[in-house]
Write a protein that binds this DNA or RNA. Sequence first.
DNA 1: CCATAATGCGAGCAATCGCTCACATTTCCT
DNA 2: AGGAAATGTGAGCGATTGCTCGCATTATGG
Lengths: 211, 211
Amino acid sequence: MESPVNPRKRPAQSRSRATVEAILEAATRILRDEGLSAVNTNRVAERAGVSVGSLYQYFPSRAAILSELVRRMRLSMSARLAEASVEARQLPLERAIPLMMSAAIWQYEMEPRLTRALEEAEAQLPRDPEVMAGRRKVREAMVSCLSGRGIADPAEAATDVIAMTRGIVTTALAMGLTDFEAIRARIGRAALGYLRECPRNAADPGDRRPA
Amino acid sequence: MESPVNPRKRPAQSRSRATVEAILEAATRILRDEGLSAVNTNRVAERAGVSVGSLYQYFPSRAAILSELVRRMRLSMSARLAEASVEARQLPLERAIPLMMSAAIWQYEMEPRLTRALEEAEAQLPRDPEVMAGRRKVREAMVSCLSGRGIADPAEAATDVIAMTRGIVTTALAMGLTDFEAIRARIGRAALGYLRECPRNAADPGDRRPA
DNA sequence: CCATAATGCGAGCAATCGCTCACATTTCCT
DNA sequence: AGGAAATGTGAGCGATTGCTCGCATTATGG
C-alpha cells in the first residue's frame, strides 16, 4: 500500500557506505539546484555515479531518500534550537527571543533553497516517526524557552511562534530577500509582539526563573 | 518551452460554456477531495462527463485549469479583504485587525482543504499575471488598513502580517484544528502584537485618521 | 434545408518515472 | 586459493499522464 521509507539493507563494507553517501549527496545537489520535482531515482543514481540497482539496494523507494534528508535537516534544526534554549531560558524575553530566532532560521540562512525544498518534500512524504520526533524537539525547545514567564499556554505560544517564523521566512525567501539580518529583526518583532499579547498567567512569576 | 496557461478558445455557445464550468467544477472537487496530485486531465475530463479532447479545446494544459481556479480564489480573497479594509481604515487597530483577519481567513474557513490545495498549486504553477495582481490587491488592502497609524513601513508590515497569518493558519489546519474562532484569536494576537512592536513614525498621527 | 462553423469524442502516442531482475564484479574469510 | 557473501550494473517493464488528431455530432444562419 504505502511505499517503504526505511533502509532496505544496512551497508556493511566501506564501499557501500560511500555509495549511500554519494546517493544522498547527489539527491541534495539536485534538490537544491533544480527543486523537488527534479529528484527522481534515475537521475539521482546517475549524478551519484551509481546504477539504479545499487540505489535500490539501500533505499527501497524514492521517498526513502528524501525522508533521510528531511530527517537530517530536522535533526540539525532541533539540535541547534535545543542548544540555544539552554542559554535563552535564563535570559529576559527581549534577549531570549533573538537568540531563539537566530537558531530557528539558521538552516534557511545556510541553505535557503535546499531547506525550502526539504520542507516541500516533508509536506508530501508519508508521516515519518523520526521526522515527527524532530519537530517535537523543536517545539519542546521553544516551550522550554517560554515557560516560567507567565504565559498561560506556552505550548500553544510555541506552536504559533514557530508557525509565524516559518511564514515570514518563507515569504521573504520567495520574494528573493537575502538580508537575513533584516529578516531576523522582523521575526523577532513578530515573536516578541505576539508573546506580549498572549494571555498571561497571573500566578506565574513574570520574568523571573522558577525554582 | 513553457506550457501555456490562458484559454485556447473562448466558448461561444451556451453548451460549451457549460462544458467549461463542468471541467472547473470537477477539478475543484478532485482537488478538495483527493489533493493536487490527483488532478490530472484524464480524470478531470472523466469526472466532468466530458472527453479529454473537449477539455483541451478550452484549456491548453493541465496548468491552465489549475491557474484558473487559483485566479478565482485570489480574486475572491482580495475582494473580501478590500471590502473589509474600507471599514477597517476608520477603526482603531484593536478593532480593525480582527475585521481584517476574519476576511483573510474566510476562504480557509469555508473550504480548508481546497484552499490549501490551491495554495500548493499556486506555488508550483508558473507565475501568472492575474494571480500576482490578486496577491497585490490583498497586500494593498492590508496596507490601506495599516497606513496613517504611525507605522514606519506599512508595506513591510502588511507583508509580514499576511505571512504570519498564512503560517499560523496553515499549521493549525495541518494539525487538524477546526475551531476557527480560536484560530482567529491567535492570528489577531499575532498581528496586533507585531504591529505594536513595529518601528513607529513619530511624525505620523498615531491612531487618528489623516486628512 | 443545407453549408459551415462550433463543439464533442476517445483511442492512443510519446515521454516520464519508479522500480525489478538476471547477471557481473568485488570483497571477505578461512 | 576459492567459495560465499556483499556489492554493483543497466536494460527495460509496467504504469501513469499530458496531450494530439482524425472524425462524429450538434448548432447557427442564410
